[in-house]
Nucleic acid binder design. Structure first.
Length: 203
DNA sequence: TGCCAGGCCCTCTTTAGGGCCTT
């Protein structure tokens, strides 16, 4: 099974197009279902962190003031990821910040993103909802630390990814549930999921 | 405690609207 990079950002808001910036990034590399490496750093983008965000994440203006500048952190993160395909929970959010922050740093962001939330909506329609923490509890997966900190959320997303890959192997008999399959599954209309899984079935 | 945006999904749909999910 190929390596997958699971990423999570903490930010000042929801939209880089509206001026929001990243405050922390974490990436865990997953290979054969195991976390084989980790990257985590606060970053100083030179912007004010709203009180609401500090109460949500625990990340304060003082913490980012002492952190390395955002561009250097993003370039380190980009080197860490390389060409590894990426996964995030609600990936459209993290992909926007990945692309925006790397563009500010003058680097390309060509890695494909798959989304555990979109896949989970197809595999676990019976779940109470599809927030990361709820899905982690739903599957009795370990809480990795304080929610809404980047490394803890990336670790939980990696655990959820492992659960998804396990269920694809055991329920759908998919031999090697890789990133390409996740990309197909997240784009597949819900009624077509069984047919897609049958196409990937190993027996 | 929440707003912003954006992509996706679902339905009382498709010339649309609202909810979910991320910080």
């Amino acid at each position: 099974m190929s390596c997958i990079a699971v990423i999570d950002f903490e930010t000042t808001g929801l939209s880089p197009a509206m001026g929001d910036r990243a405050t922390e990034v974490a990436i865990v590399l997953v290979e054969n279902g195991n976390v084989v490496d980790r990257f985590q750093s606060l970053m100083n983008a030179g912007v004010h962190i709203p009180a609401f965000i500090t109460s949500l994440t625990g990340i304060s203006n003082a913490m980012v003031a002492a952190a390395p500048d955002a561009a250097s952190v993003m370039l380190d993160a980009s080197r860490f990821v390389g060409n590894t395909p990426m996964v995030a929970h609600n990936a459209s959010f993290d992909r926007r910040f990945w692309q925006a922050e790397l563009a500010r740093a003058g680097a390309a962001a060509a890695q494909p993103f798959a989304c555990t939330m979109l896949v989970a909506r197809r595999l676990y329609p019976q779940a109470p909802c599809h927030k990361l923490g709820v899905l982690v509890d739903y599957h009795h997966l370990p809480r990795a630390g304080r929610a809404h900190r980047a490394l803890a959320d990336a670790e939980m997303a990696a655990s959820l990814l492992g659960q998804i890959q396990h269920d694809l192997r055991t329920r759908h008999r998919v031999g090697k549930p890789d990133h390409a399959l996740l990309m197909n599954l997240q784009r597949c209309a819900k009624p077509a999921v069984p047919a897609l899984m049958a196409r990937y079935a190993s027996v």
